[in-house]
Design a protein around this nucleic acid. Structure first.
Lengths: 248, 248
DNA sequence: ACCATGAGTGGACAACGTACACAGACTTCT
DNA sequence: AGAAGTCTGTGTACGTTGTCCACTCATGGT
């Protein structure tokens, strides 16, 4: 029984039968914290995390322990955001359209895996190393066409805007479903029914009702992420000199 | 000196020299609260409001006074959102493209006036009467073309997604500027300079640096809201039977 | 003259981010 | 081996947030 097993106790007494001090968890580190934060955000439907919950997940009793590694919650959020930026890649060397297509598709993958990323990316300036690398790669593929800097950045922002906008819509749909505990489409349908009936009874908005009561309304739309991305790329292509517009 | 001027005081004593009870503010009402909330959100750069701040703005001493009219903060937020939806209009009777163009442009107007609207519209399902009317009008203009319900709704969602996505980007840019108190472009430039120099010194990301240091980088982009809207409408048009695609 | 109603008050609570002082273990230098 | 310093996690505490609940007080109907 070493002295390390003795813990002071409010009354001034000492516990001798305490198990060995926890220390079960390995050392904290910025990397371990960010990874846990990402996993925690993935577990929450809303993607919102709490310093206290994160500390608990890391097996640490005090939220303040994290502040030795991250400075502030906003700082941590920046790290999480940049980590996801790191999962987005820009294929190099196959032309601007292929590059932006890859940016869009891998971005969409990342956003589907971590919907909260869309919210965070929209609410803080993207200045982490991974985001920087992403922008730089995309801009590099746009360099050869004699466009001015604003226009080049506009290409990237248009694609990323579509990615993040679609991500936010996805996030909102998921949180809406979870808000009342609906997991299947039929649950959702059942819960929405009374509202729809009242609207239908009012008689205004018949076109909306005809959509809301269409059993096919949850089928995939032709305006999929990929399709809209192609439309945007088509539009962007018109800003390039004709000989540089890649074929579809 | 009427009894109404006597106010109990912790010690059990009474103030006699209090002025007449305030009652300077007129009666609360749901409408007055929502209007004040919209104005308050417009005044804050982030668009975030507080029940306490809202109560103060309405000349009311306790935030709880508002709960007699709104149920919860989320409920109030829904009312604010729907109020802004009411400022978006769909021109009727001039074809689907004109209708969606109008939806996009008035939506963009509304979002520029109330950038916080984009955040709220993305974070709660749009089910207020004004939103309902908006969807119904837009869907009505899409009714004559034999599209299925999912596709019709996809048209509207594509346009609204662009509006709200652009709005969020705008909101983020404004909050970023305000976060450190920058009001002019040169302030922003001065504050960003050290970061950029460190990135430039590192030597990676030359294409990003070449954008960040371009004095023209704040000029309006060719990928403006309206231009992207046109590209999206062009894309949507390809889903229609050829004879129904309006000319630009 | 009474009393029910309804508007606004104010104190309290839980959860949040985070500041601060501290305890115990580990490292380093004698 | 012992002392001194450093590094890591703890505990307490504060201010802000949304919201609950018991309360006061002016008003209007009988």
């Amino acid at each position: 029984m070493t002295s390390s097993e003795r813990r002071p106790v409010p009354g001034g007494l000492v516990w001798f039968d305490e198990p060995a001090p926890p220390r079960a968890t390995e050392q904290l580190s910025r990397e371990r914290i960010v990874n846990a934060a990402v996993e925690l955000a993935d577990d929450q439907v809303t993607g919102e995390i709490t310093m206290r919950a994160l500390a608990a997940r890391l097996g640490v009793r005090s939220p303040m322990a994290l502040y030795r590694y991250v400075g502030s919650k906003d700082g941590l959020v920046d790290l999480m955001t940049d980590q996801v930026y790191g999962r987005i890649t820009v294929p190099r060397g196959h032309g601007w359209r292929h590059a932006l297509q890859g940016l869009g598709r891998t971005g969409w993958d990342a956003v589907q895996r971590h919907p909260w990323f869309a919210r965070l990316a929209f609410s803080r300036p993207p200045m982490g190393p991974n985001a920087l690398h992403l922008y730089d790669s995309a801009l590099a593929e746009l360099a050869p066409f004699g466009l001015d800097a604003t226009t080049r950045m506009g290409f990237v922002k248009t694609v990323l805007g579509h990615v993040l906008g679609s991500g936010l819509a996805l996030l909102e749909e998921q949180t809406m479903r979870a808000r009342a505990g609906f997991h299947s489409d039929s649950d959702l349908e059942a819960a929405a029914a009374p509202y729809l009936e009242r609207i239908a009874a009012a008689g205004k908005h018949p076109h909306f009702i005809s959509w809301a009561t269409d059993p096919q309304r949850l089928a995939p739309e032709p305006q999929s992420f990929e399709q809209v991305l192609e439309w945007l790329l088509d539009g962007l292509a018109t800003l390039l000199p004709p000989e540089d517009r890649s074929p579809v």
